[in-house]
Design a protein around this nucleic acid. Sequence first.
DNA 1: TATTGTTATACTCTATAACTATA
DNA 2: TATAGTTATAGAGTATAACAATA
Lengths: 150, 150
Amino acid sequence: MSEQRRIVTDEGLRRFAGYEMKRAFNAIQADVNAVLRPFGLRLLTFSALSVIAENPGLRQVELAAALSIEGSNAVSVIEALLEAGAIDRARPSGDRRSYALTPSAAGLALLERATEAVAAHDARMLQGIVGADRDALRRALRLIESRGPR
Amino acid sequence: MSEQRRIVTDEGLRRFAGYEMKRAFNAIQADVNAVLRPFGLRLLTFSALSVIAENPGLRQVELAAALSIEGSNAVSVIEALLEAGAIDRARPSGDRRSYALTPSAAGLALLERATEAVAAHDARMLQGIVGADRDALRRALRLIESRGPR
DNA sequence: TATTGTTATACTCTATAACTATA
DNA sequence: TATAGTTATAGAGTATAACAATA
């Protein structure tokens, strides 16, 4: 035990939504990645797989735009999903620069199970936030996101 | 222009608050760090300086706990603030293992200006979120944070 | 000239293990 | 034995610049 029980506060920072957002997101990030680890996925690869399944045949540049990540950073994400056998990549007939990304059967099965786990995680994190508050949170997050770079 | 205007969506992911939180926080993170760059600060060093100014004489372990970061990761943050001349570090009389962190006069002046800029940034990001919605956002973020590891 | 995908690189944040010196 | 601070290390996310192939 310490000699003097000092109460150290971050009260001054609590007035900033950005600071509280960071703390809340860190909690989510840690939890969701723990949930996804058994599936061999991270939040980013899970998200990418989800978008690919939703938009089969999309190009890498489209995936990056949908996830708001740089194209160069999409490369390793796609590589991870390819190595896991969750997606396939093929040159489309039209443009020989681009690739068409499609989910594999295994990828769809993986996504289904992972999505269920993530849904449970999400519900757990939102416990106690109900009704109008939940809607307000959603609205606020989208508005904040829209304040960012286009 | 692309031959085919494909609409790629992340609609499936939008049902997860965690995904929207990540996107919103990325927008905040990018903006606040751009705002802090002229002051030679990042979100983390700004936060640390703020907590030190609010709790002068606190120990490093207390700072780390207040910010919810690992003690080992607090080292470089403190180092950055020391090098910037924003804080001082001294061995207290009682315990020769620990350090007492205090803001310098220059650090307090820096914090004052930086806080003003961050407040403007925060207000900008929260534009359009008013009244009950703003309270709901705050409540939700604290509740989500409390769902994380203790 | 512009776009797609890629490589290389750098910085930041987070987490863990192991160590020292002090308690 | 436990605590405060440190070092080393690794993994992950983000950002920029430069390049080859193709349009």
